[in-house]
């Protein structure tokens, strides 16, 4: 029998992968991929907890997270395309205007 801990550890591993991606990537598109990984990792955690406690709230939360991910991608990609049109690159290093 697979315990809850297994799922949580899996969540942790996937989340860490996502974090590594966030730190490592400088290509904006790849950065988006990494955030998707973070969101999915959390989704697994929610679904697992929901199952092991017999409470549906976790699934509902996962559902809303998916909705948010979808909207984020739509807006984010739009902005990305705009930026690419303007600068011809989607590298993070091209975004240096917010210098303190």
């Amino acid at each position: 029998m697979i315990g809850l801990e297994h799922y949580l550890v899996l969540t942790g591993i996937l989340f860490s992968i996502g974090i590594v991606g966030v730190i490592r990537r400088t290509n904006l598109l790849m950065l988006f991929f990494s955030t998707e990984i973070l969101l999915n990792a959390v989704n697994i955690g929610f679904a697992a907890v929901s199952k092991y406690y017999g409470d549906l709230n976790g699934q509902i939360f996962s559902f809303f997270i998916i909705a948010i991910a979808a909207s984020e991608v739509a807006v984010g990609l739009g902005l990305l395309v705009l930026w690419y049109k303007k600068e011809g690159t989607i590298d993070l290093t091209s975004l240096q205007m917010m210098k303190g």
Binding site: S50, K51, S62, A70, V73
Partner: peptide, 22 residues
Amino acid sequence: LDAEFLGVVQIVVYTGAIMALY
């Protein structure tokens, strides 16, 4: 995990919509 609805949504939204968008 017996969350069929979520599974379907995951496939439809992520692989269907989001990945298509990407």
